[in-house]
Design a protein around this nucleic acid. Sequence first.
DNA 1: GTATCACCAGGAGTCGACCCCAAGTCAAGG
DNA 2: CCTTGACTTGGGGTCGACTCCTGGTGATAC
Lengths: 134, 134
Amino acid sequence: MKIAEVSQHFGISSDTLRYYERIGLIPPVTRKESGIRDYGDLDLRRVEFTKCMRSAGLPIEVLIEYFGLVQQGDKTIEARKEILQEQRELLATRMAEMQKTLDILDHKIEGYENAVLKKEQEMIQTEDQALEIN
Amino acid sequence: MKIAEVSQHFGISSDTLRYYERIGLIPPVTRKESGIRDYGDLDLRRVEFTKCMRSAGLPIEVLIEYFGLVQQGDKTIEARKEILQEQRELLATRMAEMQKTLDILDHKIEGYENAVLKKEQEMIQTEDQALEIN
DNA sequence: GTATCACCAGGAGTCGACCCCAAGTCAAGG
DNA sequence: CCTTGACTTGGGGTCGACTCCTGGTGATAC
């Protein structure tokens, strides 16, 4: 799979894909002899995981650290678990905050809906008055 | 309430508070004659709302636009509602993505927990073998 | 074979959101 | 009165994460 397809598939610009590789977030992607990237299964899974984590806001630095540990084999399992747990908690915290904001937004939207209704009623009343319907 | 207290209370640096004011996210805060900021009730509510929205990731630009509409009175109620609804949807989408990521993290953490357990079992077995307990 | 196109490296530029700093002002304590 | 310390403005710096750009190479279409 070449870079443009990967870019398309994951909705990540190829610039970003190359950037991720440059900074070591993704390991060097396999290439054709010509030097052109040819993403294999492993590469794709890495990209997918990265995309998922990034979309939730996990910092690049943390991901690099994590992948570095993966590289070092089983002896780093504990450390990796701790990283993931920490990020999990941070994520949960962020989500809780967002939930609060969401509630407030809903509340405010509802308020506006009522306001609009009220205005409409007033307008109808005004119309009614104008038409002397009442 | 002076700036340091507001900063403390909301966990926002006073630099950031001044910055918000400079860019028009918060309207000019009331001052003492000496020129020192003295946050009133209205100011505080604005700060709180801003903090809440920002903590959920709503862009500053959107908030400025929103507050601008508020300033313009009732005729902008529809537009305001639309902004809030749009942001609400974006927020919900982000949260859904984060939930997916959270699930994956939990799954991975569980995997690591099992891995650790397995390793411990192996170690015990190795010990047992070493001690010829079996 | 040549024109066009996707790809390459990697350095520079951008963007959003702060954060810091210098130089000055004011209020209260000693 | 003078020092100390919190406040002021405004501009420049930083940080994370891209995004763009230049100049070059290889492959495919005509």
